[in-house]
């Protein structure tokens, strides 16, 4: 059986969800929700991409957002690190010590907080792209890079131009196909 190439299994750039760096997180979540949730009989199959690319108008890849990064911004006091928790404690403290705890937005309703935090700009919260592959990279090298950098997607370049995205799902399916076809 002929070994498949990265370009055979990748998702072309124009079919992958992408957002402008100046857009709000709310916009990014809307695009990703739509792309991730392929509806079949009204039920989300959750078969689509788990990440959204941040690209400028010239299609330069600037960053990426995944579920965890998004949740961390939307609900920082729970999903974020120690500094976010301290910050949230500090804000609550400020209002409690000012005898105005009813005004504390960090303790406001979950829905109100999520909506407020979704106003963040994508460029302020996007993650760095850690690693990329060229179109002629072997599947093994791509898998190696995923493990080494602890990531789930890799942009695929042809020279300087990004042409698509390969996900851990695509690499798993490619390896699974080897087993099943043999």
């Amino acid at each position: 059986m002929k070994e498949r190439k990265i370009t055979d299994i990748m998702i072309p750039l124009n079919r992958y969800p992408a957002v402008n760096p100046e857009a709000t997180l709310e916009t990014a979540v809307g695009i990703l929700r739509h792309a991730h949730c392929e509806l079949e009989q009204g039920i989300c199959t959750e078969a689509g991409p788990n990440t959204i690319l941040v690209v400028d108008k010239d299609n330069h890849l600037l960053g990426i957002l995944d579920f965890k990064a998004i949740l961390k911004v939307l609900i920082p006091e729970v999903a974020g690190g120690l500094s976010e928790k301290l910050r949230s404690l500090g804000v609550s403290l400020a209002f409690a010590e000012g005898d105005a705890h009813t005004l504390d937005e960090a303790r406001a309703s979950f829905v109100a907080r999520v909506k407020k935090n979704a106003e963040a700009k994508v460029r302020d919260i996007m993650l760095k792209v850690r690693g990329s592959v060229q179109a002629d990279t072997s599947l093994v090298d791509a898998i190696k890079l995923l493990f080494k950098n602890k990531i789930t997607v890799l942009p695929v370049y042809e020279g300087d131009e990004i042409i698509g995205i390969v996900r851990d799902t695509d690499l798993f399916l490619a390896v699974a196909d080897i087993l099943l076809e043999s």
């Binding site: 910050r87 500090g90 804000v91 400020a94 960090a106």
Partner: peptide, 15 residues
């Protein structure tokens, strides 16, 4: 200690 913990969050919230 409380003020320094609160500062960044309060600025970020535009309050």
């Amino acid at each position: 200690s409380g003020a320094l913990a609160a500062g960044p969050g309060l600025l970020k919230m535009n309050l």
